[in-house]
């Protein structure tokens, strides 16, 4: 779980904040803070699918699931439990 969180966090900081991640809290909204643009959402989904071997459906690509580190981790956990 903490490994997953670290990976997601690292990816967001590396790719969208270019290393400037000091202010990023786990519950910071990507939309509100302008961290993601429309292309960013597609990149994020690709990253999650490749890194965590999950398939994210179109109807799951929602701000509720993907708008913060917290929401992403919770979403991935739900996906795992459902698959188990």
């Amino acid at each position: 779980m903490s490994d997953m969180r670290a990976k997601v966090r690292g990816y967001i900081i590396e790719n969208f904040l270019f290393g400037q991640g000091n202010d990023l809290q786990d519950n910071t909204s990507f939309l509100e803070q302008g961290i993601l643009d429309s292309t960013g959402v597609l990149e994020l989904v690709t990253f999650l699918e490749e890194t965590f071997s999950v398939k994210i459906e179109a109807d799951e690509t929602l701000p509720e699931n993907l708008d913060s580190i917290d929401s992403i981790c919770a979403f991935l956990e739900r996906k795992r439990k459902a698959a188990a």
Partner: peptide, 8 residues
Amino acid sequence: LSQSKGAF
């Protein structure tokens, strides 16, 4: 984006 990511 809109094809699959309408909510965003």
